[in-house]
Amino acid sequence: MDFFDLVTEVIDLRSFSNLWYWIVLAILWSSMSHWTIGVPFHLVTRTRRGDAQAEIDMLVLARMNAERNVAYAETSGTVATAFSTFILTGLAITGWVYGVEFSQAIFLLLCPSMMVLGLGVWTSYRLRADDYQHVPQILRQHRTMVQMLGVVFIFITAFWGMYQNVNVGPLG
């Protein structure tokens, strides 16, 4: 077995039958659920339990990341949205029109990530409009929405991956 065979064995572009893809999917949704606009959710939980230092840290991180998100959205949000839409459209076309499974897999990772990113910007605007008075509640609501998106998109990804494996992939 030469090096090229070894590399193609480890990095298989048939994504839905590859264990690494599912590990990446789990890590992606776990980290998106844990980091609510850049604030680790354990700080929100510790704040709720009455930890004063955790509350200070949470407020500082929430204000810093919300202001950064709002500034980024106001300065280059349109360009970033256009570029992201271009990339996602390209992936969708190559994935579903031309049947490239790797593009489908990347699309099913990036599209919900872009939605969570947009939700983070919306949450940042909410925090700013609220003058950072109800930070723990807003961050808990954000996390709940991210988790609901996660359930829906993990189901869609698993369903599509099973369909690909049974009908098109190695079993079909």
Rank of each mutant, 00 (worst) to 15 (best):
I37A: 00
M148K: 13
L13S: 07
T89Q: 13
L43H: 01
W35Y: 07
V146S: 02
L6P: 06
M148S: 12
F159A: 01
L139M: 11
W20I: 09
I23Y: 03
F83A: 04
E9H: 08
I23V: 05
M145G: 05
V100M: 10
T94W: 06
M1S: 11
R143C: 08
Q53W: 13
H134Q: 03
S33C: 01
N167T: 15
E74F: 07
T47Q: 08
C111G: 05
Y132S: 14
A129D: 13
E55A: 14
W122V: 10
L109T: 10
E101N: 10
R140L: 07
Q141Y: 13
W122D: 05
A54G: 14
F159M: 00
D51C: 04
V121G: 03
W160H: 15
G50Q: 15
V7S: 03
V44H: 07
S17N: 14
V168C: 14
P112F: 08
L110T: 01
F3N: 13
A73S: 13
V70F: 05
F41A: 07
L28K: 00
G95Q: 04
F3H: 10
V135S: 05
T89I: 15
Q133C: 07
A54R: 04
A54K: 10
T78M: 14
R68C: 02
A52K: 14
E55K: 11
S15H: 13
V135F: 02
A92S: 10
P112C: 12
L13G: 03
M162N: 09
R126Q: 06
N18V: 09
G95K: 01
L88V: 06
R140T: 11
T94C: 06
R48M: 07
L110R: 03
Y125V: 02
G77L: 01
V166D: 03
S124I: 04
Q104P: 08
W29V: 04
E67T: 05
I11A: 14
T75V: 05
T123L: 09
D2P: 04
R63D: 09
V100R: 06
L91H: 03
I154G: 02
L59M: 02
E74A: 07
Q141S: 11
V166I: 12
W160L: 15
L110P: 04
F4C: 09
A82N: 13
Q104R: 12
L139E: 07
S84W: 01
Q133G: 05
A26W: 06
V100H: 11
M1G: 08
T85W: 10
S103C: 15
F159N: 02
V60F: 12
A62E: 03
I156E: 09
